[in-house]
């Protein structure tokens, strides 16, 4: 007996695309602000910060893991980079600005590697391992900054992510590039294939003699690195580093990954779905603001929309 063949592209994502279009059309009619350039920049930046993290999260969840530490990663990256700029001499020179950003990326990547090592070498389940590092990294950010917001970073750093290229906000460009790389990694590389296989049946992959540990650590490292890019972008856009930045970012990332159709238990992942999920969540958040829905209702409505998207998605994949 032949089961239903694989759905073509539009069929798989029809629901999400439809929702994004419908809400956009509704908002552009209902609110004079929606189509304004300033609003688009706003939405774009918001989505970009989330999407950069969600790309890494897609890879991690597809491999059967999860990373709760990405929000804390954003904060710690920002704080360490800010401290570097504030404490180092001649920090406004171009080489030092670049060095600071490399330090940021190294921080995030190191956090990812630590997660991978705790999960693989010590055998701690991903949820608990990253719940632990989430607390540790947030704590380090608070201690390092003494709980204060840090200001006064060099102009060169601020201009890295603030501003536009060809009329498009820089964080959006960064997010688009990362999303494209993400689509490529998941669909066209050995790492993406291993992520799906490990998430689908780790025991099978193990007896095939594949070095699961190495691939998993790489995947968590990528997730951590992307979180730190998000952290750099956020710090640069606000020109301030907050120890409480990135709070709940991990949950937003997980939400859009699952809304997009990636299986939370691993094995099946879609980067396109994640991109659409991030678009949907960003537009809904923006819509609630510009439609002047009272702030107390926002969490409730966002929660409901996430649930509906996931329920429809899980029905479809059956």
């Amino acid at each position: 007996m032949f089961a239903r063949s694989r759905s073509p592209f539009f069929h798989s994502y029809l629901g999400l695309i439809g929702a994004v279009v419908a809400i956009s059309v509704y908002l552009s009619i209902a609110s004079p602000y929606f189509l304004k350039v300033a609003n688009f920049v706003n939405i774009g930046n918001q989505i970009a910060i989330n999407l950069i993290i969600a790309v890494g999260m897609t890879l991690i969840i597809t491999s059967g893991g999860i990373d709760l530490s990405v929000g804390s990663n954003v904060a710690l990256t920002g704080i360490l980079v800010a401290l570097f700029y504030l404490k180092m001499p001649a920090s406004s020179t171009v080489p030092m600005v670049i060095l600071g950003m490399i330090l940021g990326l190294a921080t995030g990547t190191a956090i990812g590697i630590i997660n991978g090592l705790i999960i693989n070498t010590l055998g701690v389940p991903p949820f608990i391992a990253t719940l632990g590092t989430m607390g540790v990294m947030r704590g380090l950010a608070l201690i390092a900054s003494n709980g204060r917001v840090l200001y006064g970073m060099p102009k060169g750093f601020e201009s890295t992510f603030a501003g536009f290229i060809g009329g498009i906000p820089k964080p959006v460009i960064v997010a688009v590039v990362i999303a494209i790389i993400g689509v490529f990694i998941l669909g066209r590389t050995t790492l993406g294939r291993y992520a799906k296989a490990i998430g689908g049946n780790e025991r099978c992959v193990r007896v095939c003699g594949i070095n699961i540990e190495r691939h998993k650590i790489t995947i968590y490292a990528i997730g951590g690195c992307l979180a730190s890019i998000s952290g750099l972008a956020l710090t640069s856009m606000m020109n301030a580093a907050e120890p409480i930045a990135g709070n709940f970012y991990e949950l937003d990332a997980i939400a859009v990954v699952v809304m997009g159709g990636t299986n939370l238990m691993g094995g099946k992942g879609t980067m396109i779905g994640t991109i659409l999920g991030a678009l949907l969540l960003g537009i809904v958040r923006n819509g609630l603001n510009i439609m002047k829905v009272p702030a107390n209702y926002h969490q409730l409505l966002v929660g409901i929309i996430i649930l509906v998207a996931v329920i429809i998605g899980s029905k479809r994949s059956r």
Binding site: K196, A197, G200, N201, C204, K268
Partner: peptide, 12 residues
Amino acid sequence: EEGLVLDLQSLH
């Protein structure tokens, strides 16, 4: 349990 990744295509 150990032979196949059921979610993956046969070829893969």
